[in-house]
Design a protein around this nucleic acid. Structure first.
Length: 824
DNA sequence: ACTGGTCGCG
């Protein structure tokens, strides 16, 4: 007869009121004199049955009280008693002292199956899986008369660390006929789920003649942890059909699935179930609720759950801290961290991971360094890679890639995420070629396999420098394993094709991939925008709505900038309105920037200025910059002066603005203004962001910095530029010195214009590629106005199509004409 | 007397 359902007494923990009983007792035994100790032992009837000791065992609340009880049992001559010793083994491991469990176990002369089971389980409970397996082997070799029973298997199955052993154990279970025991079968389900063999797990599950809520939970969590949300919810549903009610475990494994599959309806329904059945007093449940609401960005709900908790553990605090940290509120997160310290809960590794992210967001250099020190002192770097990865990420967020790289180098072990973090750090700090170098080094490591995270960090780096060939190589590699269908990877590829001027390739990829979320739509809308195809962007937006894809704030940034690049003022205005009225999206600085740009470019300078003045947010440099650029196009020196003075208040470091202002003055003949701006720039000792341009020749990306004279082809490049310059002048080109800020003689100014990075890159492209082939240039800043003009002439003289992508948009030069004229 | 299934990081 198979043991199917058993009533199992679970180990109840120690009612506190009994503590005093034991203390009084132990006090009588030990704190008094030797005589009274003996007297007490005499008084205590040593023939008492084992169950008479229960109240003492129930009174043990920590390892010290347990030791006292242990000593008492020794005095009473009970140290050989297998029942009492087994209880001690379990108590010691409950309080985290596995070595005391072991020595207690060793002292038992006649070990029985109960004591072996407890010892094996004790190792598993303290995550010493290797020792647990050793103990099993010891058990099999030492005792001839004892056989494992169905209590032995669940812990062993849990300790199993590879699938091959798992399958052997499964055979063993079958041979001994334990496969229908609820606990053993649930453990098998759990084992197969851990190794991702869900069909095997599911087979064990369906073959079970009797299932308790634990078996359902094992199956559900198996699907959950392998990311099969639909199947998990399916099992949950049949559980409901069979009339089994969700318990705290079910709820805490299903809630993360709701978050993962963006299923807020089910999430809230489950929360209602929790409230109806009073499950919210369980810490696991409340913690899972906090995490779920955090993923849905519903911080009020997360906090409500947190506030109502009666008992909060480390995970609760970590969860609420991470909730605010993940939703860009580092200050509140920090307040909760302080609250946690106040109630005396010690931070663990994950707390520190959140803290690094918080300080990265707060961009506080000093505290960031102190947390680095804290990690080093605790030698936490050795404990887990995640903490090191978090530090690399923190320094990257602070823009300090030197420190990030140093920490990275010091990591005792590096995983794929370490590399991804480093690559992303370089890429997001505009150091694309360093990102590419890091990626190439990563490819050389044999034990590191790139994953989705790698692609989404390296592809943008390639598109940043216009390395179309390399990007396409990755695309080809991803087609082999279908990862290009991953929405995030595909979106990067779309963005890359867009930014590299291959709009058609971007479009065809877009139509190949799943489009249920706004993410790929936003990318393709932005691509259309920088190519000046505003009408098509608006049409695609209509398609997006027809396919019931929800537009978000990024959609509107893409859309507004598309309108702005194509001069679609009314349409842009309309988008701005429906964004607020129909979607309830509060415009951010980016949206206002697009609108100022849109109105300003089209010549509605006053309207743009009004909007800027009346917006509820503090204008930043990019918005004043947009207004200033518009003033330059339309030659409005007054407003331009005003904009630039405000601009220099918020960002006096960016030399580009001085150039713009000087250019405005020069165009309106205000030469004293030009002089003033130049001396201002000189006095501030401006170090400008190094401008660079890149050009792809063959499969190699060549990068040129302004004034770069170290390139191996330097002589030929400058020779070509001088030849071109003479031809350009004969066609009517006049250098525009207002783009030169330095106070030098005219011929030197011409030399400076000639050494602009975009000019060097174009010249290098001309001398390195066959005649009349097209040239693609990338520039990290905006193209200089004089270079823009010069490139028109160059395209005519050399009969080449020249495509220049700068930080703002595409410029397509063909036969002396550019696709856009408002180049600033 | 001993057994299974639950929450948090980049």
């Amino acid at each position: 007869m198979l043991p199917l359902l058993k009533l199992v007494p679970t180990y109840k923990l120690h009612p506190v009121f009994r503590v005093s009983t034991l203390h009084r007792w132990v006090y009588q035994c030990f704190s008094a004199s030797t005589n009274s100790l003996q007297m007490t032992s005499h008084n205590f009837d040593s023939n008492k049955k084992e169950t008479d000791f229960n109240f003492l065992f129930n009174s043990c609340i920590n390892v010290n009280v347990t030791k006292q009880l242990h000593a008492l049992l020794v005095v009473l001559g009970k140290s050989q008693n297998v029942v009492l010793s087994t209880k001690l083994i379990n108590l010691y491991v409950t309080f985290g002292d596995i070595s005391l469990s072991r020595s207690t176990f060793n002292h038992i002369h006649k070990k029985n199956i109960f004591s072996w089971n407890s010892m094996i389980a004790a190792y598993v409970r303290s995550s010493k899986y290797h020792e647990a397996m050793n103990c099993v082997n010891e058990f099999l070799s030492v005792s001839d008369d004892l056989r494992p029973d169905f209590y032995t298997f669940p812990p062993i199955l849990k300790a199993c660390v590879n699938l091959i052993d798992g399958k052997k154990l499964h055979c063993w279970v079958l041979k001994m006929g334990f496969e229908h025991d609820v606990f053993v079968a649930s453990s098998l389900i759990n084992l197969y789920s851990r190794f991702g063999v869900l069909n095997a797990a599911h087979k064990v599950f369906v073959d079970m003649p009797v299932r308790d809520v634990g078996s359902w939970n094992a199956m559900i969590s198996g699907f959950c942890q392998n990311g099969n949300a639909a199947e998990a919810l399916g099992v949950l549903n049949s559980m409901k059909v069979e009339g089994v009610k969700m318990d705290t475990v079910t709820v805490s494994s299903i809630l993360p699935v709701c978050a993962q599959s963006d299923d807020i309806v089910n999430g809230v329904l489950i929360h209602l179930h929790v409230l109806k059945h009073g499950l919210e007093t369980d810490v696991f449940v409340s913690n899972a609720l906090i995490n779920m609401y955090s993923k849905f960005c519903r911080l009020e709900d997360a906090q409500k759950v947190f506030d109502h908790m009666e008992v909060r553990d480390l995970v609760s605090w970590n969860s609420i801290i991470a909730a605010y940290e993940q939703n860009d509120d580092p200050n509140t997160a920090l307040r909760f961290f302080k609250g946690m310290q106040l109630v005396g809960i010690r931070p663990d590794l994950l707390t520190v991971v959140s803290l690094t992210s918080i300080f990265g967001q707060l961009s506080d250099q000093r505290i960031s360094r102190s947390i680095h020190g804290f990690v080093m002192r605790g030698e936490w770097l050795e404990k887990d890679v995640v903490i090191g990865n978090a530090l690399v990420n923190m320094y990257a967020k602070l823009g300090d890639m030197n420190c990030a790289h140093t920490v990275f180098e010091q990591l005792p072990s590096k995983d794929t995420i370490s590399w991804n973090t480093l690559i992303t750090g370089y890429a997001q700090n505009g150091l694309a070629s360093e990102a590419i170098d890091a990626y190439n080094m990563m490819e050389e490591c044999r034990d590191i396999t790139p994953n989705q995270g790698t692609w989404v960090s390296i592809i943008p780096a390639y598109s940043h420098v216009g390395a179309l060939q390399q990007g396409m190589k990755i695309h080809g590699r991803l087609i082999k394993n279908s990862l290009y269908l991953d929405v995030f990877v595909a979106t990067c590829l779309i963005d890359m094709y867009g930014k590299c001027g291959r709009l058609e390739d971007a479009m065809s990829l877009f139509y190949e991939i799943p489009r249920e979320t706004s993410v790929p739509w936003n990318a393709i809308l932005a691509s259309l925008g920088i190519h000046g195809r505003g009408e098509e962007a608006l049409q695609l937006f209509k398609d997006m709505l027809a396919e019931r894809v929800k537009a978000d704030h990024i959609t509107f940034v893409s859309l507004l900038s598309a309108c702005s690049h194509s001069g679609l003022v009314d349409e842009g205005q309309k988008c701005f309105d429906i964004m607020q009225k129909e979607y309830g999206i509060k415009p951010s600085l980016k949206h206002y920037g697009c609108m100022v740009d849109l109105l300003g470019r089209a010549g509605y300078l006053e309207k743009a200025y009004d909007l800027l003045n009346n917006m509820p947010l503090q204008a930043d440099a990019s918005i004043w910059g947009a207004l200033l650029a518009a003033c330059r196009i339309h030659g409005n020196a007054e407003l331009g002066t005003l904009a630039s003075s405000r601009l220099l208040e918020v960002d006096s470091e960016n030399v580009g603005y001085y150039v713009l202002l000087s250019n405005i003055y020069a165009n309106s003949g205000k030469w004293d203004g030009v002089v003033k701006v130049r001396s201002l720039a000189r006095d501030r000792g401006l170090r400008k962001t190094p401008g660079w341009s890149s050009v792809v020749v063959g499969s190699k990306v060549e990068v040129f910095y302004t004034g770069n004279q170290t390139h191996p082809k330097y002589t030929e490049i400058y020779k070509e530029l001088r030849v071109l310059s003479a031809k350009m002048k004969s066609l009517g080109y006049v250098p525009d010195y207002s783009f030169v800020l330095q106070d030098v003689e005219e011929d030197e100014k011409e030399q400076i214009l000639i050494s602009h990075s975009e000019r060097l890159a174009i010249a290098f492209g001309i001398i390195s590629t066959p005649p009349r082939s097209p040239i693609r240039i990338f520039k990290n800043l905006r193209v200089c106005g004089d270079c823009h003009n010069a490139t028109k002439y160059i395209s005519r003289i050399t009969e080449r199509d020249i495509v220049v992508r700068d930080s703002n948009r595409f410029h397509h030069f063909k036969d002396g004409i550019c696709s856009c004229d408002d180049y600033w």
